[in-house]
Write a protein that binds this DNA or RNA. Sequence first.
DNA 1: GTGGTCTAGACCACA
DNA 2: GTGGTCTAGACCACC
Lengths: 126, 126, 126, 126
Amino acid sequence: MQFEINPSISVPIYRQIVDQVQRLVAGGGLRPGDELPSVRTVAALHAVNPMTVSKAYSLLEGQGLLQRLRGQGMVVAERAPGSSKSERLALLRPSLQAAAQQARQLEISPADALAAFRMELEGGNQ
Amino acid sequence: MQFEINPSISVPIYRQIVDQVQRLVAGGGLRPGDELPSVRTVAALHAVNPMTVSKAYSLLEGQGLLQRLRGQGMVVAERAPGSSKSERLALLRPSLQAAAQQARQLEISPADALAAFRMELEGGNQ
Amino acid sequence: MQFEINPSISVPIYRQIVDQVQRLVAGGGLRPGDELPSVRTVAALHAVNPMTVSKAYSLLEGQGLLQRLRGQGMVVAERAPGSSKSERLALLRPSLQAAAQQARQLEISPADALAAFRMELEGGNQ
Amino acid sequence: MQFEINPSISVPIYRQIVDQVQRLVAGGGLRPGDELPSVRTVAALHAVNPMTVSKAYSLLEGQGLLQRLRGQGMVVAERAPGSSKSERLALLRPSLQAAAQQARQLEISPADALAAFRMELEGGNQ
DNA sequence: GTGGTCTAGACCACA
DNA sequence: GTGGTCTAGACCACC
């Protein structure tokens, strides 16, 4: 398990972590019982403050997605959702709406926008 | 000319305005000499603080995209860019990359993601 | 509006704030639209770090009880619950259960425990 | 002798054990010479780490409430207190004060709060 | 080893 | 003026 953190974009780091865990749990990339990397590990790997990671984990615990195992770290909660295909598509929609709005304002044709999106989907770094 | 403003998302309102004007100018939806709606109009229509609109216009003026015509409001600057197709695609790319990353984490297949994007491109409110 | 914060007990300060707001909203002491004291005010009054107060407010915003009015502070959310009598009693029950368990273990008779509780209810500092 | 342990609440498990023994000794439920369940028994029964139980017992031994009898486990110390009625009420008071404060914030009348407390005192699991 | 809490102080963003 | 984010570093609690 590895997070993709980009400190240069405006989305707060803790939000990037929260969002990724939410999507990974919804998509099945993280399943109930799976352990998450420790706060200190993530902090060291990405050179961020442990508190920033801790804040993300606490928020996810508050949402019921993660559980704290006293003294041994965080795991994906047993009763964690794991969403249906339509629910997952609903989670993706806001991003697609924003991109579509931008394409229209930029006067980029649907065909060109779709072609560019296909490239990102196929060529993207996993 | 009408802005699409959504006060509930986290993107600051002034930024939503700035981004839209930039894209409309790049795409040709706004051409040199075109007038922009007055600060008061925008503020009243979207129930936002006039200072917020004014700040957005000032930023765009600072970038050289808008010009303040005394007593007449803001117009698109004469020397305003208007970008090539590849430049416009480059402006769209970050959004597509983000959406593609999210689709992968949600375990949504490229085909499904593309279909959903096509719907947004076609059905979206102009 | 004034919080009761006791830094000497083990309940974290931010939790004390969260709990109080939850109860005040449920009980009607805080109604939709009411403004909360600013982070800095609370921090100064109780000599705690602003971040501690901010953390509490953020959690409450995440729960939907508070709303952030950009640039002007936090208010009780319009769609905030405001609970029925039985819901409020349900919120009180855990404390009563804990107290009852302790009374039994201390071999304090129900009559004595009730008398002591009555004193606290009547004489308590508002 | 049986402990009531609730791993889901925030009170640390070892503290739940320590508190209960203290109250049982104060109340007379545990008398000098009484044996306590073995670390293994408690750990197995409540699915907690034996080290956690052991830590609680060690703390109580340090307080002089328990004594380690070689090969026989822990027993209540001979010189163990056993408190007067007013002392026991004093031990209960903090819980009652907290409950009373919560009732006020929840706008629950003293009569309703007392009635709910009476139910807990009578109906509670011994 | 794990996470939790708090501080002091800096800097940003918004109105 | 408002809240948000992050850091560095300390100390605690649990296993």
